[in-house]
Structure formats: C-alpha cells, structure tokens
C-alpha cells in the first residue's frame, strides 16, 4: 500500500475499486445483507463490508472470503434504498484483493473465477469441457478423480443430449481473429494496470 492511503482505506477503495466511489453513500440499513442468497455463509455481509471499509479495516476486508460468495443475483442492488451498485462493488473488491495479492488462496470461487477468465481469455470463447475439467481437478489429482466420478452422471446426461462435446478437449470454439483479440485484451490490461497503478501512486 502506498503512503497516500495510510489510514484511509475508504479513499483507496474509492480510487481503485470498481464503483468504489459509491461506498460512502451507504446508510447501513442492512437490506442488502438480508437479501443475499448465500448471506448466512458470508463472514461479513455487504452492509458490514461497507462499514468496515469506513472503519479502515483494510486487511479484514480484502482478505475476506465474503465477496467471493456473491452469486451476482442483483437482489441487493434492486432493493438498496441508496442505489448502490453493490454487486459490482463486491466484484470490484474481490478483483482488487486478487490484484494486490491478498485474496484468500483456497477460496473455491476465487479459483473458479480465475479459471473462467483464463479459459475465455485463451481463445475468446469459453470451452465448457476444459473449464469443467479444470474445475474438477483444481484441488489436485485425487480430489479431481473423486469429483469427476461424482459428476460422471451429469456429464453423461449432457453428452447424451449433445449438450457437451468431448472433442472440445482438442481445441474447440474460439474467435477467428485471435491475434486482434489478444492484442486488444493485452492493451486493455496494460491500460487498467496503468490506471490502478497511477491511483496507487506507484
């Protein structure tokens, strides 16, 4: 963390987190926390996260697994009386924690979300089969075999109904303009890093 944010996590969030400038608008009514489908599993539900940001609890917020349990259901956003884009702030906080390297390492959705991005960034389109396999094997080989066996019947159901194609393993779907797509993504990533880097005062 750069000096400029010492004791001012709210400012850091406002500058670096997607839609972070909204955090100060929260009036702590708790509607979002009560609307969250996996809320009971969140260590700190959204309302609490917003309070903690203002209370400067930087480590506790950014290392929390809570935001990674957002299902993107938009229930909170539809109901928030202050109109906070809560879903996007949760995604933004999760991304920022990951970017600066303090997101929880073993959080399953954090791992899955990264694999999803890697999968789509590779060819421009998601390869569901490779994504599924990567997911089942993300906790190592023997766990993967167990999960795959557990999921075997689901796979067979999808295969039978032609909703899964085993040949995808050989390559599968992708955009035709690979080079343009990759250059575009690279440039966007550079610009984003420059933006956040600049904000961090690096």
């Amino acid at each position: 963390m750069s000096e400029q944010y010492r004791n001012n996590f709210l400012r850091e969030v406002e500058k670096n987190v997607e839609e972070g400038e909204w955090v100060k608008m929260c009036m702590q009514c708790g509607v979002c926390s009560g609307s969250c489908p996996l809320g009971p599993h969140w260590e700190h539900p959204p309302q609490e996260i917003f309070m903690m940001i203002r209370a400067n609890k930087r480590e506790e917020v950014l290392t929390s697994s809570s935001m990674w349990m957002c299902t993107s259901c938009y229930n909170c956003m539809a109901r928030c009386p202050r109109g906070l884009p809560i879903t996007h702030i949760m995604h933004g906080l999760a991304h920022y924690a990951k970017r600066i390297g303090i997101a929880p390492k073993e959080q399953p959705t954090a791992k899955f979300a990264q694999k999803f991005w890697d999968n789509l960034a590779k060819k421009g389109r998601v390869n569901e089969l490779k994504l599924g396999l990567a997911l089942y094997f993300m906790n190592g080989f023997s766990e993967g075999v167990k999960t795959s066996l557990k999921m075997k019947d689901i796979g067979l159901g999808m295969l039978k109904t032609k909703r899964m194609n085993p040949l995808e393993i050989l390559g599968g779907h992708g955009v035709k303009d690979q080079s343009g797509f990759q250059k575009m993504l690279q440039k966007a990533t550079e610009l984003e890093s420059a933006r956040v880097g600049k904000e961090q005062g690096k």
Partner: peptide, 15 residues
C-alpha cells in the same frame, strides 16, 4: 467473443 459473464472478475479487471 465471450462477455465474461458475471464471474470473469477474478482475472479480468473493469476495463
């Protein structure tokens, strides 16, 4: 190309 759905945020930043 893929839109990154609602779950691409771990690897992909806003831009």
């Amino acid at each position: 190309n893929c839109c990154s759905a609602s779950i691409g945020y771990a690897g992909g930043g806003e831009l």
